[in-house]
Amino acid sequence: MRNQEEKALTAVCPECKKGIQFHAAPRPYHLFLCPHCETMLLVTAVSPLQVDWAFEEPGKPIPHRGDWRLEIRNWGNLQAPNL
């Protein structure tokens, strides 16, 4: 019985693929950090318990470092659009 309850309160981190054990049923759309890899996660479903990456949003960008025209030449992996 206890094992079943524990299983119901366990989810897998999509980032590190490790199990995350909850002590109580989390609220849906609850944001939390994975205890293993510290990735921000979101409870997407409660029964069965599922978690996913939370939305990504870059913070305030730091200032421009230099001339991007020089840097672009170094981008070997650039996939330019097909004409």
């Binding site: 730091i62 421009h64 991007w68």
Partner: peptide, 21 residues
Amino acid sequence: NIIDYEYRDILTPLEAYIAYV
């Protein structure tokens, strides 16, 4: 289109790519 970029000023590669195109 994923641009690998080792620095934190992500606006630079965004602008650079768009300007390049």
